[in-house]
Design a protein around this nucleic acid. Structure first.
Lengths: 343, 343
DNA sequence: TTGTAAGCGTTATCAC
DNA sequence: GTGATAACGCTTACAA
């Protein structure tokens, strides 16, 4: 490994001066600077990152905490998050280390080991609702962190999340405007905060218009094609109680929903209107369904920069309570909604 | 941050002695050791990892190189790899940082930045066939690395891979034993080395028995359900030329294959025998198909320990040419194969 | 059994 | 414009 000393030795100057030349300090003669730069190129010098870190008192490393038991069908989303964050932090000369949260009884003890040993400046916590105790621990230890997504309580910690309530509101408003009254809701399980938020968006819109919500049209479960299909079959079991529109949590679920409708011989939007939210993934082509689904979309990609920025500020000691951002979804105009067939 | 000096000051001893006490050196009085340990607990002392790394001349960090443009449908496999390796290295007190290989024209320059800046002791390269130039670069720079999977040339570098040729052989032998002659092959694309190996396993078995191979029964493409289904439809377009058995690369493809057969009204194994390889993923329940598929299986999980071990040895300067391992697949007895209906 | 001192590779401070 | 020195926190000869 080539060091500043090596270069100094070779050029007959002190390491200090080499450092200055490389650091772009003004008080270095042009001649010296030139020779240093040449030598650096020739010898292939690279600053020793460990020395820099020791000097700076920072590791330049952030931890990426991901729960061991991630939703199986969400693997492409999780991967998108991991890779997206790695790239974003890399731009900022920050390394991202993977911390897998032990599935079995994550205790304060395992956290401690995680944080002491990882020796990172801060953490990004993915899917924080998977382990609320973790956030409490981090806050108590005043370890800088930002979450992607939210758990129920967000007071005083930094997060970046999609505005899922707006997602629910946009879809519900569109459907209600068209005259739909029996709107089904197919989304993630009870402990999914994002699904909860979208449902509350729907409820709010209905309430504001004096419409009542039918609990029997709410289907929550795993975000798999299978569950989407099963939910549809269940929804249309009794034709008298069937919905005229369906709001779906994401495109995986929607794929199952559309398959179910097809199996039942129901046309979209002729018989049923369908809206879905699309977490646009940069690394995956958009799922193509027929007809094109109306609904909402949000580019995940937007989040990475915000998360990296927030974490940087949190590490710099800024009050994390102010570092919160909701990403607004955009409405997507497809061809899967129409006024209800029966008035 | 609490340092050795702080503890020494508090206890009226030198930092050196504190270090020794903590390091488990014998020449420390029991009394001193006790007091040090107490102080450590009280003050919450943690060794500064950056100082350790600088001192040791090693970072205790390995890079995990993943291609930006990973196969979309393989995301759960890639995630399994990332998390599996992270956990395995974590056990060995080694951190894993994510390095995403730039999609656009990965140049020597981008590699250089990646490797110098990352300041890691070595790399695990996932899916090396995605970028052969990378391996050449790493070897030329004599940077320690281990690949998971292989590209065509493996001379002189460490790798851990499934023995895909054996996979092909096991399936082909079983089918040939039952009397199948027209065996279709549905697997990954041309540039997939694993698919290539499995095909060569099939070819070898056929050749050894004096059977000829029908190129029109070979379908290679993306490992998606869609492609699997399309391949089946194509295979049975002309009934006279249809296969009596199908070998499938993985369970995602197999799901599509089974759906295709169902659509065609073909029963398994009555009309067609199906065998598939199952990369058993620890984090995902085994895909359940009806009937249970016969074929081969290999627990991915086995690979992590080997990879971590190999990389450790490579970092310690061991000749990487000797660090190569093929994991043997096991035969899986399902209910999806039978003798061909027509002799 | 303990302390002193040097060194890992950098950069900031101070002096010349 | 340049060089010596100290310091970041730790380990390890070498002394005592």
């Amino acid at each position: 490994m080539v060091t500043l000393k090596d270069i100094g030795l070779r050029l007959g100057i002190s390491p200090t001066q080499v450092s200055r030349a490389l650091g772009g300090y003004p008080d270095v003669s042009d001649d010296t600077r030139q020779r240093v730069e040449d030598a650096v190129r020739q010898l292939g010098y690279r600053p020793n990152p460990n020395a820099l870190r020791l000097k700076a008192g920072r590791s330049g490393v952030v931890g990426l905490v991901v729960p061991e038991n991630s939703e199986q069908e969400e693997s492409n989303i999780l991967l998108e998050i991991l890779l997206g964050l790695a790239v974003e932090f890399w731009k900022r000369d920050v390394l991202v280390v993977l911390n897998v949260l032990p599935k079995a009884a994550p205790s304060t003890k395992s956290y401690t080991r995680l944080f002491r040993q990882a020796a990172v400046d801060g953490f990004v916590v993915v899917n924080p609702s998977a382990d609320p105790g973790l956030l409490a621990f981090l806050m108590a230890e005043s370890i800088p962190f930002v979450t992607h997504g939210r758990a129920a309580t967000t007071a005083g910690h930094a997060f970046v999340d999609l505005d899922n309530r707006a997602v629910g509101q946009i879809m519900a408003a569109r459907l209600a405007d068209l005259g739909h009254r029996d709107i089904a809701f197919v989304d993630g399980p009870q402990d999914s905060f994002s699904a909860e938020e979208r449902l509350s968006g729907l409820s709010g819109v209905l309430a504001a218009r004096g419409l009542s919500q039918r609990d029997d049209l709410i289907h929550r479960g795993m975000m798999t094609e299978q569950f989407g299909e099963a939910a549809v079959l269940s929804l249309f079991k009794n034709p008298d109680r069937a919905p005229t529109a369906i709001m779906v949590g994401n495109l995986v679920l929607a794929t199952g929903v559309m398959r179910g409708l097809q199996r039942l011989g129901l046309s979209v939007p002729g018989d049923v209107s369908v809206m879905a939210h699309d977490d646009v993934l940069a690394r995956y082509p958009r799922t193509t369904l027929t007809p094109d689904l109306s609904g909402t979309a949000s580019p995940f990609t937007e989040a990475w920069g915000d998360i990296a920025g927030f974490l940087g500020q949190a590490i710099d000691g800024k009050n994390p309570g102010g570092l919160q951002k909701l990403i607004a979804p955009v409405a997507v105009q497809g061809a899967s909604v129409a006024a209800p067939a029966r008035a």
